[in-house]
Amino acid sequence: MDDLLQEMIRPAGPSAADRARRRRFVASAATVGLAVVGVSSLTTSALFRDNDDAGVSGFTTGSVSISGTPVDEVITTDPLVAPGDTSYAVLDVLNDGSLEHRYAIEYAATNRNSAQAPADRPVPDLASVVDIGLYALPTGAACDAAFVASAQPLVPVQKLAAGAENVLLGSRTDGVQGGERTLIAGASEQLCVSLGLPIGAGNEYADATTDLVFTFFAEQTKNN
């Protein structure tokens, strides 16, 4: 009875079993709490991977821009250029946009009489007899006969065609058409152009000139 009364007057503290149970409860609560914290934005925003999708500040479109050295190559059958001669010219192509692009090349060839020809002479179609070749010029290489003799042409050597929008390399049509060249953003390259007057060109092509203008068409490669 005394034990019972003492228990009522001055209750005993928690038993060892109660303390043990409290420890287990606290440990369990802490474990579950850590699991919740672990999947919360508090920690997921502190640690991320470089393959995570994440919000991007602003949506910015890039640019496709190409600049090439326009070549008004003049071929004239004056005493300086004779049948059998070949002229060489370098085209500098620069991707000055922010996106990688592929590019195609077209040219426009315009025939005319040179100053030495009679004014009333019909303009000979000099372009139709001139051979054009296109080569990728490695850095430091010279665009000359020695290089062309050993280089692989980007396109088969072919006769020029008078008029505009003559395809030289690739195609201006959207998408990969075959033959286009690729330049990453900020990159540049040089192309070597050879223009040859065949040895069999007749006298009708004397004092004649063909003006060439090259046009570059560039499009982004990504998603295209």
Binding site: V56, G58, T60, G62, S98, L99, I184, G186
Partner: peptide
């Protein structure tokens, strides 16, 4: 090779 495309500075994390 360098990366094919340039990146605007506002996309730098």
């Amino acid at each position: 090779e360098p990366d094919p495309n340039a990146t605007p500075v506002n996309r730098v994390r």
